[in-house]
Design a binder for these strands. Structure first.
Length: 857
RNA sequence: GGGCGCGUAGCUCAGUUGGCUAGAGCGCUGCCCUUACAAGGCAGAUGUCGUGGGUUCGAGUCCCUCCGCGCCCACCA
């Protein structure tokens, strides 16, 4: 315990308590507790690729409020922190920051140091994969340090001894083990298939990372030679003409029915392609007959697969057209030299450049009707990419999805807060196409524990993997040899070749519940914490993180990974756009917000965001929390300055009334928190607290000082003590610093380890238990009526432009008999607080107070 | 095209199963240095609860239509 300061202040509280909590292990997880005593939280590992913004503070604070509530309810809270530091986002960040680019063909350079300053227009320096991974590691370590500082400053009650990195050994072991087990059950498999491909990052991307963007394009009407004359095709991608493998129209389309089963000749390249029917062809689009290319979009893939068409791929992984020798098998042409001449003009060009040239060639040859007609249409992009995705064929690892009914059943089994977020999950499951491609042609990630045999001719058989054993994990196939081989056989005929890719970052983070609970490395901890209680996350990654996590747990444990999913909203800027640093009216950085408004102030603001609701950033709102914290300091100083206690008897009706109302508040806040509705809990508590200060404190102030004798003073002081302890408890999840400070003035231990306030105990203190005689139940209305009358008196003084200290010679209260009876119970306090000499009553319909002020001196 | 959410004071938002004259904070106006609090307190003004219907004794709250905004999903030639 410490003394109450003369002039309470928020200054220095954060540093003081942050240090104290760390020293005393206030939030340390007690791992002797068993599963039923534990509340475990699958904290979202923030992507360590930039800076945290106010939106992060917003949602992580909300989770912390739930954690603190559960801890006070007596659950042992398992609240770890993860860092998502693998994956493309980190690589991108590192490339920008260090001005480098990974070139896996280069050898490791132990002396390499990135340039001190990097300018945007500098050409990236190619470096080896080990060098690049090293740089990534250094950059994320630095960022993680600053993230840790921020989270500590915000007051997250995380147990920092339980933290993990998605690129850390425990994550790699879990990812690789999960992967091997799926392969063993044939739930993960190797496949060579068309894949959505980002040509800038040169990697495959998964369906979940796609984004449609309205993009300018143009229809080009191109002439094919059909059996009975020209066939006109509308296309937005004329550059894929050499990749055309068929023409397709709807089976019911009478215009084209005569052509089905025949062939047409492509312009410029003279390829005879079949004319086929498929119901996906839209008669109302373009000319109603389309060219199928390998591959222009995902519909092409469907047609190609379902119609068993040939393959003529031209777009390479770098987005440029690959060299082709016309006349060779697969590239037969009725005029190979002409095809070659046309193609040589576009080979090596990007899709965009090739399109321009093809259009010129078509126009010169009179094979295009009219000018291109500009349109805008949705085109698939990688969500972080800048150029449209291409589709290329490559070797990939894929995970099969469970059948939709099973996934939907898991979605129903999970408790969603708010409930309507379940729909997003169901939408996604119902729209799934194909399997989950978990392969990324990147460098800083979890490697596949796999190698491929190299035959005597030096050809790698990418479809016959050699897998590592579970015991050998973690494995890096690029530095370790597979079982039965030695490293000098690497990339040699008759030897082996390492899997060159890494896992999709979601393939790792979908195991976050297993990683943080010690699935691989700490079975005892796993036993005590899994399946988890809560997954807090934002709604934008339901289709990725949440969905994938459910799938992995379904496969691995035949169970949900957690019982509850609390979905948070976004912070929007004042223009209702998702918050972004670049916006002109972007708010301050989290650090600046914390400096300006204090952690408690920022957390207060975060707590006002309803679960699942987006909230506009409004600087004015941030001030309120700070004000509330200061008010709490001052009100506490007042109550404790009167030697308030929690041990005495509460006898006065007004005091009992206040405690009864407080008991109702506790019950309501508890119910709200149990539904993960911290916002409602705070709103109710705050509302009570302000009227507690404005009305109750004013009403009992004089009596508490002893103006009405010892018994009345003791009752007030006990009520004040009980109320203060209760309010500190109710506010503790939101305002951890200021509540802890006040708690330390008069209580032992930490408020954050104290029991959550009990409505029953308060009712008992208010004399609401069985011992209360009939008709003597404490009634919250006593305080309400007294406060209303006091308010009328204040109003009269205010309207008379007089000080609140002004004496009232006489006040007449008119109201219903019932309410007048309630007023009688608190009349002495009302007279004292209002400085009323004579307080009389008369019957009436509604509350009216006639006030006679003593004349101005 | 399908779905979800939202539309309440100038601004940001509460209004839990339909129930007394619709609330809070910010902002605005006025007053007050009252021994918890002047980087504060007290008091006050402000709303056809998006539109039009319906159910009901009674609807911001339930049902239907429409309008606007945001987001999710969708095979995008």
């Amino acid at each position: 315990m410490s003394t109450i300061p003369d002039k309470p202040s928020l200054d220095g509280l954060e540093a003081k308590w942050r240090q104290r909590w760390a020293d005393e292990g206030t939030y340390r997880f007690d791992r002797t507790k068993t599963r039923d005593q534990v509340f475990s939280i699958d904290t979202p590992p923030p992507t360590v690729s930039g800076t945290l913004h106010p939106g992060h503070v917003f949602s992580y604070s909300q989770t912390d409020m739930i954690a603190r509530y559960q801890r006070m309810r007596g659950r042992e809270v398992f609240y770890p922190m993860g860092w998502d530091d693998n994956g493309l986002n980190v690589e991108r960040r590192v490339q920008l920051l260090t001005g480098t680019r990974c070139d896996p063909s280069l050898p490791y350079d132990p002396d390499f140091r990135p340039p001190e300053t990097v300018r945007k227009k500098d050409k990236p320096i190619p470096i080896s994969r080990p060098n690049f991974v090293e740089l990534c590691g250094a950059v994320v370590e630095q960022l993680e340090e600053s993230y840790f500082d921020l989270w500590s400053n915000v007051g997250l009650s995380v147990d920092w001894s339980h933290s993990y990195r998605t690129i850390g050994p425990e994550s790699i072991r879990a990812s690789q083990r999960g992967f091997l087990r799926l392969v063993a059950r044939d739930l993960a498999y190797r496949s060579e298939a068309p894949t959505l491909w980002d040509v800038d990052f040169r990697t495959a991307v998964a369906q979940a990372e796609l984004q449609d963007r309205e993009t300018p394009g143009a229809y080009h009407k191109i002439r094919f030679e059909g059996p009975d004359g020209p066939v006109w095709i509308d296309t937005t991608r004329p550059e894929l003409l050499p990749a055309c493998v068929a023409l397709v129209a709807h089976p019911d389309d009478e215009r084209y029915q005569p052509l089905f089963g025949q062939t047409a000749r492509t312009p410029l390249f003279g390829v005879q392609v079949p004319i086929v029917a498929h119901e996906l062809a839209a008669p109302d689009k373009g000319t109603g007959i389309a060219m199928i290319c390998t591959f222009g979009d995902t519909t092409d893939v469907v047609w190609w697969r379902e119609l068993g068409l040939g393959l003529r791929a031209v777009v390479q992984r770098d987005g440029r057209l690959r060299p082709v020798t016309w006349g060779e098998p697969g590239w037969e042409s009725t005029d190979a030299p002409a095809a070659q001449a046309a193609y040589d003009d576009i080979a090596g060009k990007t899709a965009k450049q090739a399109q321009a040239r093809i259009v010129e060639l078509l126009a010169e040859a009179g094979l295009m009707e009219g000018e291109p007609r500009p349109i805008t249409h949705p085109v698939k992009f990688w969500e972080n990419g800048t150029r449209p995705l291409e589709i290329v064929t490559s070797n990939q690892w894929l995970i099969r999805y469970p059948d939709k009914d099973a996934m939907l059943a898991r979605g129903k089994e999970l408790s969603w807060w708010p409930d309507f977020m379940r729909v997003r999950y169901e939408n996604w499951v119902n729209g799934l196409q194909g399997d989950w491609n978990i392969t990324r042609q990147r460098f800083f990630g979890v490697p596949f524990p796999a190698w491929y045999p190299v035959d005597a001719d030096g050809n790698v058989d990418y479809l016959s993997p050699i897998l590592a054993s579970e015991e050998s994990l973690p494995v890096d196939p690029t530095t370790q040899a597979p079982p039965g081989f030695t490293d000098d056989q690497r990339d040699q005929p008759g030897g082996f070749s390492a899997d060159p890719d890494v896992m999709d970052t979601w393939a790792t983070s979908s195991l976050s519940p297993q990683i943080c609970t010690g699935w691989v490395d700490d079975p005892d901890l796993f036993e005590r914490t899994f399946p988890m209680d809560l997954r807090p996350q934002a709604h934008d990654i339901i289709r990725t993180w949440l969905f994938y996590t459910v799938v992995r747990s379904h496969y691995e444990h035949e169970a949900l990974p957690w019982a509850n999913a609390a979905i948070s909203g976004f912070i929007l800027d004042p223009d209702r756009k998702k918050l972004s640093k670049s916006a002109a009216n972007a708010p301050d950085s989290p650090d600046e917000l914390l400096a300006k408004f204090g952690a408690d102030g920022v957390r207060y603001w975060a707590a006002n965001g309803r679960p699942g609701m987006d909230v506009a950033f409004e600087p004015g709102q941030l001030k309120i929390g700070r004000k509330l914290a200061i008010k709490l300091l001052n009100a506490s100083k007042f109550a404790l300055g009167l030697e308030s206690t929690t041990a005495g008897q509460v006898t006065e009706p007004l005091d009992r009334s206040m405690l009864a109302a407080l008991a109702d508040l506790v019950a309501e806040a508890t119910g709200a928190f149990d539904r993960f509705d911290y916002a409602r809990a705070l709103e109710r508590t705050e509302s009570f607290f302000w009227s507690f200060c404005d009305d109750y404190l004013e009403l009992v102030k004089n009596r508490a000082y002893g103006a009405a004798g010892d018994e009345g003073a003791a009752s007030a002081r006990t009520a004040l003590g009980l109320a203060l302890r209760t309010l500190l408890g109710l506010f503790a999840p939101f305002l951890p610093f200021v509540t802890e400070e006040v708690w330390s003035w008069w209580q032992e231990g930490s408020v954050h380890r104290s029991p959550w306030p009990s409505a029953d105990a308060l009712r008992e203190a208010a004399g609401a238990d069985d011992s209360a005689s009939p008709g003597d139940e404490p009634d919250p209305e006593v305080l309400a009526v007294a406060a209303a009358v006091l308010g009328e008196v204040r109003k009269a003084k205010s309207e008379a432009k007089r000080s609140m200290r002004t004496e009232v010679s006489a006040a007449v209260v008119a109201d219903t008999p019932d309410r007048l009876a309630l007023l009688a119970l608190g009349a002495d306090d009302v007279r004292s607080a209002g400085r009323i000499d004579a307080l009389t009553t008369e019957p009436g319909d509604t509350l009216t107070v006639t006030v006679d002020l003593v004349p101005e001196a």
